[in-house]
């Protein structure tokens, strides 16, 4: 009994740290984007103020129960993903609830929030929400193919579905990282990562200039606050996932921050350099080269 309580408290501590890291990271990344566009950009702590502002709105409007549950699902997707990742390898405090089959679980869980949003946004009755959701789901499904193939290649390579074991297998030297031991899987997954982070070539779903803002069109006040909170936690959790799978995990917070920051920069730089894809273009793109690389990764792991 005592152990599980301690574990939950430790998990809450992890959540707190990662939330703050995610909020600051999103501010910093906005600033980097602005600097490329020769602006000063928002203050790095602006996401905090926006969050407080949204929670202090005095009125909110409801469209039904599912409308309320949508953002909760979304947040559950973010927090759930984080709670099943070993955040700091080898630390009893930040190991979270990592268990034997968590790799499959994580793959499923990162889709969870999108589906919740689909139901919630659908109930708002706004046509733009429904359009945004269908675009988002189409793109996510295409993006998941290379990702899943890459992850399966890792499972075959390491003979395990446990993220903890995968991290353990990469310890010792930089050359033990999956990035070097299985470059094809790493490439396929890093290409999927671009769409996962929802940045430029693949940000048509949430881009304000397109179908206004997509699924959250009707979300406002505290409901939007919940979504914003998730937009801080979810990317941070995904960064930690990729760091664990491909870049050898982290044994302390300093290592985690450096590694995740540079992993994020991959999608930021691509986003700044390349213009936006339409959804049909991004789906076709994912079903092309990234998918082939994913298939090749499986074949190479199995037969070579």
């Amino acid at each position: 009994m005592g152990t599980i309580v301690t574990k939950i408290l430790y998990a809450l501590l992890t959540l707190f740290i990662v939330t703050n890291y995610g909020l600051i990271l999103s501010g910093v990344v906005h600033k980097i984007g602005a600097r490329v566009g020769r602006r000063h950009g928002i203050r790095f702590y602006q996401p905090y103020i926006d969050l407080i502002k949204n929670y202090t709105f005095r009125t909110r409007i409801t469209h039904g129960i599912m409308y309320y549950i949508g953002p909760v699902f979304r947040l559950t997707g973010g927090i759930g993903l984080l709670l099943f990742l070993p955040v700091i390898y080898g630390s009893p405090v930040f190991d979270n609830f990592s268990f034997a089959g968590d790799l499959t679980f994580v793959l499923y869980f990162q889709f969870f929030g999108v589906l919740g949003m689909a139901l919630g946004a659908g109930e708002s009755g706004h046509p733009y929400s429904a359009l945004g959701v269908s675009r988002g789901l189409a793109q996510t499904t295409a993006m998941e193919l290379p990702l899943t193939l890459g992850v399966l290649a890792l499972a075959v390579q390491y003979h395990t579905l446990n993220i903890h074991d995968i991290v353990a297998a990469q310890q010792g030297s930089i050359l033990h990282w999956t990035l070097f031991t299985n470059p094809l899987a790493a490439i396929a997954m890093m290409l999927s990562f671009l769409a996962m982070m929802g940045r430029s070539p693949f940000d048509v779903v949430l881009a304000p200039q397109e179908i206004p803002i997509g699924p959250p069109t009707e979300y406002h006040s505290a409901l939007l606050g919940v979504l914003q909170l998730n937009r801080a936690i979810f990317p941070a959790a995904k960064l930690i996932l990729f760091m664990n799978l491909l870049f050898g995990g982290a044994t302390n917070w300093g290592e985690l921050i450096i590694k995740t920051f540079f992993i994020y920069m991959w999608s930021v730089f691509v986003g700044i350099a390349y213009p936006r894809f339409r959804v049909d273009q991004s789906v076709r793109w994912y079903l092309g080269i990234p998918l082939l690389i994913g298939v090749a990764a499986i074949l190479v792991v199995k037969y070579f």
Binding site: A34, R39, K53, F57, P208, I213, Y219
Partner: peptide, 22 residues
């Protein structure tokens, strides 16, 4: 909002829907 005056510095941002704007 563009580089010359850059109102983002002062916490001013665009929102595409009246629901989210203040």
């Amino acid at each position: 909002m563009t580089p010359r005056f850059d109102a983002y510095r002062f916490g001013i941002q665009w929102r595409p829907t009246p629901r989210q704007a203040s």
